[in-house]
């Protein structure tokens, strides 16, 4: 004990901080996020915007590089975002002017136990590279996004309707300009009562 008190503590050496520390994934300053740092280093201008909200990190990338960025994140030894949890789209019609859609990927790293959201803005009629070569799980998810939003995924092996019937001709229902009940007029059934209604008692005692 006395030794500890008497010996001078050595001058604190400048230890380099671990660049892969877990708290960096959750740091308030989003630029410290390892995925953001690595992507900026590797791809530079491809990262358009980085947003942090409710402990979730969203990286906006340019759509033409979506596949490269995904593949980089998946094969990176430290980041290792091996799982594509979800792929969907977002119609930004009422929120901004252009581009119209966002393709949203939710990634998960089993190694680091963190999530990451990738977004790529894509305009109506523009196509976005498919990530099926990166993750096979994207196959059905991209088909669903095409089905619901009409976003064409370039290089998808089998891009056809997923949930709606193949001969559906009313457009893409999750777009914001698609009305809730569809474009077509459907007959309304049984609005005029053809059989006259007889008043019944339902006191529970019959008759």
């Amino acid at each position: 004990m006395t030794d500890d008190l008497t010996t001078e503590s050595p001058v604190q050496e400048e230890t380099p901080r671990d660049p892969w520390a877990r708290e960096l994934f959750f740091a308030d300053d989003v630029e410290q996020h390892p995925a953001v740092r690595e992507l900026r280093e590797q791809f530079g201008e491809v990262v358009v915007d980085v947003v942090r909200f409710r402990d979730e990190t969203t990286i906006h990338v340019r759509p033409e590089y979506l596949r490269q960025v995904s593949d980089y994140l998946r094969t990176h030894e430290q980041l290792s975002f091996k799982m594509l949890i979800d792929l969907t789209a977002l119609d930004m019609l009422r929120l901004r002017t252009a581009p119209r859609f966002d393709v949203v990927l939710q990634l998960y790293s089993i190694k680091n136990r963190v999530r990451l959201r990738l977004k790529a803005g894509v305009d109506d009629g523009q196509s976005v590279p498919s990530v099926v070569p990166v993750w096979n799980g994207a196959n059905w998810l991209e088909r669903e996004a095409y089905d619901m939003f009409g976003i064409v995924f370039e290089g998808h092996p089998n891009l056809r309707r997923m949930l709606l019937p193949d001969d559906w001709d009313e457009g893409f229902p999750l777009r914001k300009d698609y009305p809730l009940r569809g474009w077509k007029e459907y007959p309304s059934y049984n609005t005029e009562r053809t059989v006259s209604r007889t008043r019944t008692r339902w006191t529970g005692r019959g008759a």
Partner: peptide, 14 residues
């Protein structure tokens, strides 16, 4: 504005 359901069995069925 957007309500997305990521259902497990839809993805698993793939």
């Amino acid at each position: 504005y957007r309500f997305r359901v990521r259902s497990p069995d839809f993805v698993n069925l793939g």
